[in-house]
Nucleic acid binder design. Structure first.
Lengths: 66, 66
DNA sequence: ACTTTTTGTAAAGTTTATTTTACATTTAGT
DNA sequence: ACTAAATGTAAAATAAACTTTACAAAAAGT
């Protein structure tokens, strides 16, 4: 799976720490998600999509590994 | 988090085993998801939404616990 | 150039997702 | 009523998410 969290963060001018605090996870969790080190839970995906005002599908994408 | 997997299964006339096979998880995983025993990964949410032809947000919902 | 902020990364630990096996209960078909 | 299919559930095991602490590197501000 891929995601556009880094781009959305840039649009909204959030640091990783900002985003982490807003959705209630550690900064390293955000960093790891951006670097595709693991797949976040659906709760996190929904929270991030809601925060950025876009549907989950516009931020998270299935790829060939999935 | 809540979900409408059971309803979508009914609409598409899938058994839990059908759905499990189509998205590549065990039947117990589907059952547990329907019974809100745990939160699925975003990959599973995307696959299920895609299979049912609806956005993730129409199948999975944040609730007060999240 | 210096300082601060932000990002990348890593190891160890805890919690939670997911699988496997297995069985009991319910539902649907005949 | 009988049978088969579908669902609920549970325990043990494994994999993966997520946290915490900590430090190094890069980027941005002055």
């Amino acid at each position: 799976m891929k995601n556009k969290i880094k781009i959305e963060r840039a649009i909204h001018d959030f640091t990783q720490a900002d985003l982490a605090e807003k959705i209630g996870v550690s900064r390293q969790t955000i960093n790891a998600m951006e670097k595709n080190k693991y797949v976040p839970s659906t709760v996190l995906a929904l929270k991030i999509a809601k925060l950025f005002g876009k549907p989950v599908e516009e931020i998270f994408f299935l790829d060939s590994d999935d």
